[in-house]
Simulated scan of single mutants.
Amino acid sequence: GATVAVLTGDPRHSAALRDAIVDGLRDGSLAARQYRSHGAGVALVGGGPGDPDLITVRGRRLLADADVVVTDRLAPRELLAELPEHVEVIDASKIPYGRFMAQEAINRTLVEHAKAGKFVVRLKGGDPYVFGRGGEELLACAEAGLPVTVVPGISSSISVPAAAGVPVTHRGMTHEFTVISGHVGPDDERSLTNWEAAARMSGTLVLLMAVDKIGAIAARLVEYGRPADTPVAIVQEGTTAAQRRVDATLGTVAAVVEAEGVKPPAVIVIGDVVNVLAAAFQR
Rank of each mutant, 00 (worst) to 15 (best):
T3D: 14
T3L: 14
T3N: 12
G9W: 04
D10C: 06
S14P: 03
A15M: 02
A16Q: 10
A16C: 03
A20G: 08
L25I: 08
R26E: 15
D27R: 08
L30V: 15
R33P: 03
H38P: 01
V42I: 15
A43Q: 10
G47M: 12
P52A: 05
D53P: 05
L54K: 06
V57D: 10
G59W: 13
R60N: 14
R60T: 04
R61P: 01
D65R: 14
A66D: 03
D67M: 10
V68N: 08
T71L: 08
R73G: 03
R73E: 14
R73M: 11
L79I: 07
L80M: 07
L83T: 06
V87F: 04
V89T: 14
V89M: 08
K94E: 11
P96T: 08
Y97M: 13
G98P: 01
F100A: 13
M101F: 10
Q103M: 08
R108D: 15
R108N: 13
R108L: 12
G117L: 06
V121L: 06
L123K: 05
G126Q: 07
G132Q: 10
R133C: 08
E136T: 12
L139P: 00
A142G: 03
A144I: 08
G145D: 13
L146F: 09
V148Y: 03
I154V: 15
S155P: 03
S157R: 04
I158C: 11
P161E: 06
P161M: 06
A163S: 15
G165S: 07
V168K: 07
H170R: 13
R171T: 08
G172T: 11
H175E: 14
E176V: 06
I180A: 01
S181L: 02
V184Y: 12
P186W: 13
D187P: 03
D187K: 14
S191M: 05
S191F: 07
L192N: 13
E196C: 10
A199K: 00
A199Q: 01
T204Q: 07
L205F: 13
V206I: 12
V206H: 02
L208A: 03
K213S: 01
I214G: 00
A216S: 14
A216L: 10
A216F: 00
A218F: 00
A218D: 00
R220Y: 03
A228H: 11
V235T: 15
V235R: 05
A242D: 14
R244V: 05
G251I: 06
V256R: 12
E260I: 03
E260F: 04
G261H: 07
V262Q: 01
A266C: 09
A266F: 07
V267H: 01
V267S: 02
I268N: 00
I270D: 01
I270Q: 02
G271Q: 02
V276T: 15
A279L: 13
A280K: 09
